[in-house]
Simulated scan of single mutants.
Amino acid sequence: MQTSVAVFDNRYRDFIEQVQLTCPSDPACLPGLRATYQYRNQTSVRIYGAEWRGAWRFLPQWRVDGAVAYAHGNNEQTGQPLNSVSPLRASAGLSWERTPGQGAGVRWRGARPVTRTDDTSFTYFKPAGYGVVDLQAWWRFNRHVSLALSVNNLFDKKYWLWGDVRQTGVAANEPGVDFYTQPGRTFAASLKLSF
Rank of each mutant, 00 (worst) to 15 (best):
S91F: 07
A90L: 10
R40H: 10
G101W: 10
N83W: 00
G66A: 08
R53M: 12
R116C: 06
T36H: 05
A67I: 07
G105W: 12
R98I: 06
A104E: 12
A90Q: 12
Y39L: 11
N41T: 06
H72L: 09
Y48F: 15
F58I: 06
L88K: 04
R53A: 14
G110W: 11
T43L: 12
D65A: 12
V114M: 02
R46T: 04
A67F: 09
Q38P: 03
V85G: 04
P113A: 15
Q38V: 14
Y48G: 11
W56G: 08
Y70G: 05
A71Y: 05
R89C: 04
N83D: 07
N75D: 02
I47G: 00
Q80A: 03
P100E: 03
G93N: 07
Q102P: 06
V114G: 01
Q61E: 15
Q42N: 10
S86F: 05
S91I: 07
V114C: 02
E51W: 07
S84L: 02
R57L: 08
Q102R: 15
W56K: 12
N74I: 08
P60E: 14
Q38S: 13
E51Q: 14
T115N: 05
G66L: 11
V106K: 07
V68Q: 05
A35V: 08
N75F: 00
V85Q: 03
L82T: 01
D118G: 02
N75S: 01
P113D: 14
A35Q: 13
S84E: 02
Y70F: 14
D118S: 03
H72I: 06
Q80F: 01
G93M: 10
